[in-house]
């Protein structure tokens, strides 16, 4: 019998994997993919809690739709910035892009 905790642990694991990628990867595109994993963990959490805690409401699903919309906007802007940085610096290594570092 599957309980709410099964699904919550999957989403917690996905979130932790995303955090790990965010902290270790040096390629800006892979850092962005880790952020997508984290956003997916969040929307999975909304769906799970919506299904198990408020089964008659669609509020959780509406929040998941908003997360997907925000993720699309964020991915487009981040890709434009990464491609723009690559044009000037010929690298997307986040450790070599230090222009704003004091």
């Amino acid at each position: 019998m599957l309980t709410i905790h099964h699904f919550l642990i999957i989403s917690a694991a996905l979130f932790s994997i995303g955090i790990f990628g965010l902290l270790t990867r040096r390629n800006a595109v892979v850092v962005l993919m880790s952020i997508e994993l984290i956003l997916n963990a969040a929307s999975l959490n909304f769906i799970v809690l919506g299904k198990f805690v408020t089964p008659g409401l669609v509020t959780g699903k509406i929040f998941a739709i908003f997360i997907i919309a925000i993720a699309a906007a964020e991915a487009a802007v981040a890709m434009a910035i990464i491609v723009g940085i690559f044009k000037y610096r010929r690298t997307v290594d986040v450790e070599k892009i230090t222009d704003l570092k004091w």
């Binding site: 709410i4 905790h5 919550l8 642990i9 917690a12 694991a13 979130f15 932790s16 994997i17 955090i19 790990f20 902290l23 270790t24 809690l49 198990f52 805690v53 408020t54 089964p55 008659g56 409401l57």
Partner: peptide
């Protein structure tokens, strides 16, 4: 990074195990 993400995972699992998810009736 492994310690931080593992710590976050452990903290989340602990919190979930402590929480009572009460079903709200529709």
């Amino acid at each position: 990074a492994f310690l931080v993400s593992g710590g976050i995972f452990a903290a989340l699992v602990y919190l979930y195990s402590q929480t009572e998810f009460v079903r709200q009736y529709p």
